[in-house]
Design a protein around this nucleic acid. Structure first.
Lengths: 233, 233
DNA sequence: CAGTGGTCTAGACCACCAT
DNA sequence: TGGTGGTCTAGACCACTGC
């Protein structure tokens, strides 16, 4: 159960930072001093400092020293998956339709698509206890010979739909999250009342060359949906 | 402009992972093989692998090898600050009142507070162009001699209100994000119509001993509020 | 048993910073 | 110029995995 020394050093420093003994902006003992204090080699001390740095506690300035960071109070980790983020989890997904369409003004703007390009529009409904709780629209650039297999589409998340060729590592995603009144289309599909509150989550998928490879929005019934996030430094 | 060798090695491996040449679960060349291939010492190779590991690309199994991770498709970075997250930014904040109150059932549940403890309730309104766009309720455990200075409270974010003694590093935060219909209290304060859609963001602050040191909710007018998040691995 | 990753050392040279 | 962090080496010993 012996902790490696570099972990011990890192935790000692963390304690000093958490307790306020070391404040943001304060400089930390030099690496040579620490290696003398703990009677270890400088490389071991550097391993501790690298760890603290990657966790956001400190940063270093070449030629000067290591310093305590200003904690980033506004940064959170959020977990979201349009298929799993619903309270109690979706127990059925229904593929409404898959169509090859001409881009509208909205999709042309959001996907930087040209008029002559075609898009695939996938529409799905998610159910809990036979009640529709989410309505999902996804647009994917169409290319000739694209496999549009219903079974695959039915339970796939957005990245899975798009990244049939590329590695999932290469796909970046952006979310926009907002509350809004249900529009006509959403009202009809979720069978709710006009103007009911909806959580709309817009997803944009970009590949490693920053090309937009997918765009869409999922409309969640607000009673069945809640996002959670935790602070992260 | 020379890149350090350990960066070159790490980027070579990243390319192989991003292109799909190395797939999740695949094992990576052993550290000894890599150090021969690149003609560097094993410590340098390990530095590359440590970097990739901390970025979520790979993981290692002692005695076996290094492996490509399964990318975490559901993880995002979210930035949120109740004072800054509003479109166009808040240009005025009005402190409605600060009261020492007995805990209600709701606060007792959410703050694990006891009946005989007292709480401070801070109520604020945020404005854009003289229009109220957010209504903010925050509860803080009261202790004798606590400084309740109006000027400080007016523009402070939640952690700043709470962490007057502890280091900000020691404070963890949890968010719950949901869309909902405006309640009576919210309708009155934001001067909107009954049932208008609202984005409610609940914040819970915990110290390093997991004690709840703050709890509250900010109600945003949905037209003026949108969260953004980016994928993170 | 040989091979793997995990820890650690005692040096080295460099670029950078302050004085 | 001396101190700082950044990179890198060529070893070492350990615990673990698979055969």
């Amino acid at each position: 159960m012996r902790e490696p020394i570099y972990i011990v050093i890192a935790e000692d420093l963390k304690k000093m930072i958490n307790s306020g003994e070391l404040e943001p902006g304060d400089s930390i003992c030099s690496e040579n001093m620490l290696s003398e204090q703990y009677n270890v080699s400088r490389m071991t001390v550097r391993k501790s400092l690298t760890l603290l740095s990657s966790e956001g506690y400190i940063y270093s300035v070449p030629g000067k020293g290591n310093y305590v960071s200003v904690p980033n109070q506004d940064k959170y980790i959020l977990y979201f998956n349009e298929m799993k983020s619903i309270e109690g989890s979706v127990d059925e997904t229904k593929l409404l339709d898959v169509n090859v369409i001409k881009p509208t003004m909205e999709t042309m703007y959001n996907m930087k698509a040209f008029e002559n390009k075609r898009l695939i529009l996938v529409r799905r409904l998610m159910y809990i206890d036979t009640k529709p709780v989410a309505y999902d629209l996804k647009y994917i650039p169409y290319y000739r010979g694209m496999p549009v297999v219903e079974k695959e589409i039915n339970y796939a998340t957005f990245p899975e739909l798009v990244a049939q060729k590329k590695s999932l590592f290469a796909i970046r995603k952006e979310l926009k999250i907002k509350a809004q009144r249900a529009s006509k289309d959403v009202v009809d599909n979720l069978r709710i009342n006009d103007g009911d509150p909806i959580m709309a989550i817009e997803q944009k998928l970009l590949d490693d060359e920053d090309k937009i490879v997918g765009w869409g929005t999922t409309y969640f019934l607000s009673d069945y949906f809640q996002l959670q996030a935790i602070s992260s430094l």
